[in-house]
Structure formats: structure tokens, C-alpha cells
Amino acid sequence: MGKPSEGYREIDHTADWALHVWAHDLESLFGQAALGMYALAETVLQTEPRITRRIKIETRDLESLIVGFLNELLFISEQDIYGFDTFDISVKKYKLSGEISGSQIISQKKEIKAVTYHALEIKHSKNGFEVQIVFDV
């Protein structure tokens, strides 16, 4: 059985956490990275009521865009206690825009301090995109 066309997997890192994320396009890669991050933090969301937020980020390169996107989600989870599971976004060059929806966070077991640039490189192959992301916890 082959690897599903998109997803994330936790990889070993002595002190912090790292995720391997892959997807057929950039939009799904960003969405999967977000889902992976919430899973690492053991975030549990309420089913209702659902909320939607508009999101717009522009950076100098693609790696900064994924770091900026995930840091934005961390900020919202701490400030407004919202988490997201649906990402209707478009990634054009170094601009991300669109709508993300989710709901209130019921519980979160782990604290993620930040998303790092450590060995960060979004790789493009014939099967799509992949990236390895290290989080400071």
C-alpha cells in the first residue's frame, strides 16, 4: 500500500517536535501542516458552533509563508482559543489568502512556543510538495 497523497507524520527530535508533511499541492501542504501542528499539541475542538476567519499573509519566500501561517494559527489559539480544521486558501507565489474555519478549543495538552526555520525547505517533486517542520516546545 502506498503513502496517502497527503498527510503528516511525527518524526524524532530529541528536545522538540518535528513533522514531515506532504501533499499534491501547496494549499493542501499548508492545511496538512496545520492539522499536524494541532495534533502534536493534542488540540481538541468543539463541534459547534463553527466560526470562519479571513486570513491574508504575504512574505518574502515560501518557507517564511508556511512559518507565518502556522505562527498565525498559534497566535489565534492562544488569544482567542480557536482552532481550525478546514482551510479554503490559495497560495500564489509568496501570498496566502482565503478562509479558514473551525471552532473553540476545548483542550490542548501541549504548548508550542514557536514554528522554527530549522532545516526548513519546501521541496517540489513530481508527486507534489513536501516539507519538514521543527517546532520549539
Binding site: T59, S64, V67, G68, T116, Y117, H118, A119, L120
Partner: peptide, 19 residues
Amino acid sequence: VREFQGAIQRYNIKLPDRE
């Protein structure tokens, strides 16, 4: 860390890791 991604280009600093 985000802001300094641009600074290393302005000051022409080459590094093995962006962090």
C-alpha cells in the same frame, strides 16, 4: 527571526541554517 531573514541579505551574511 522573521525580520532577520531579510537582514542577512542586506548584510550579505551566508549561513548554513536559516534559524
